[in-house]
Write a protein that binds this DNA or RNA. Structure first.
Lengths: 156, 156
DNA sequence: TCTTGAAACTTCAAGCTTGAATTAATCAGC
DNA sequence: GCTGATTAATTCAAGCTTGAAGTTTCAAGA
């Protein structure tokens, strides 16, 4: 899937395949760099960061299933990540509405404080990593990605 | 990292962050769909497919370290995937040049046959999934992704 | 009420992934 | 030839990820 150089594919329909390969390579490269920096600078991981980012925007908390849907990962996956964040004191589970099946998850005060520091660094890094995309180009690319993605939203 | 809807970020430098988020969501969504189909239709996985794709283009074989570099994954990771592909009879290890540290990996005949079938389906799927990107738009997007990626190639 | 079905989570096995440590082989300089 | 550094690959522990199976709870109809 991350295929690349050697014999450049050609023929009908190859342009979309090539686009997909580029897209995947780009995101994997950036992802690897961000993961590495999160580890080095903050001793944390990308999945933990993702979860905290989602929770940071939802001060009232989120359900496990909301997190799962939002982050595009499986239900069981979220359980494990939250477990670890809880044991680090960054996240708390509460059981407060009528429905006893659900547990509302939110950042602790410490989690919120910690996240805002990491998020600032993260944003700076992304700015650097995408440094040679102009702001204008970034907006155009974003638009294109949105349009083709919408075809798929919510289908898998 | 896969953050999205809620309070749209704004301010200086946010355009690149938004681009990154879109990029990541797009590739995760497509990746999930392809993974699911590979599993359903061919009982295989994305990493196995990636490795086979790389080997398919290199009939003379590749070193483990070449695979690792090419696929952007760690060395130890490749070992495990190759182990499984070997046990499935799709890949073989050979030790043939002067350097006894290296082992050359290549597809078996069965592996090659199997891969070409899967690859055809894969290409069709990608065509569908990116269906509402015109071929022309695909080329433009590819160009943009290439230019901003080149900044990072080989740096992490 | 009871019971059937759906929903929210958790648990689990298998596989993927990383980074670090280890082993084995080669190479460079003496 | 030795020695020390480098390179190729494997092994390992820890964590991420999935899909499936299981548990508990809720909802709605007989």
């Amino acid at each position: 899937m991350v295929a690349g150089p050697l014999p450049a594919p050609s023929g009908p329909g190859k342009d979309r395949l090539r686009l997909w390969i580029r897209l995947l390579r780009a995101s994997r490269t950036i992802e690897a760099e961000l993961r590495e920096r999160l580890r080095q600078e903050f001793s944390t991981t990308l999945p933990r960061f993702d979860v905290m980012a989602a929770l940071y925007r939802a001060p009232e908390g989120m359900l496990m299933s909301d997190l799962s849907r939002f982050l595009l990962v499986s239900n069981g996956n979220v359980t494990g990540i939250i477990d670890r964040l809880v044991s680090e004191g960054l996240v708390m589970r509460a059981r407060r509405n009528g429905d006893r099946r659900t547990s509302v998850v939110r950042l602790t005060e410490e989690g919120s404080k910690t996240f805002s520091v990491i998020a600032a660094a993260h944003e700076k890094w992304v700015g650097e990593l995408l440094g040679n995309v102009s702001e204008d180009e970034a907006r155009r690319l974003t638009g294109m990605l949105t349009s083709f993605r919408s075809n798929w939203e919510g289908r898998e």
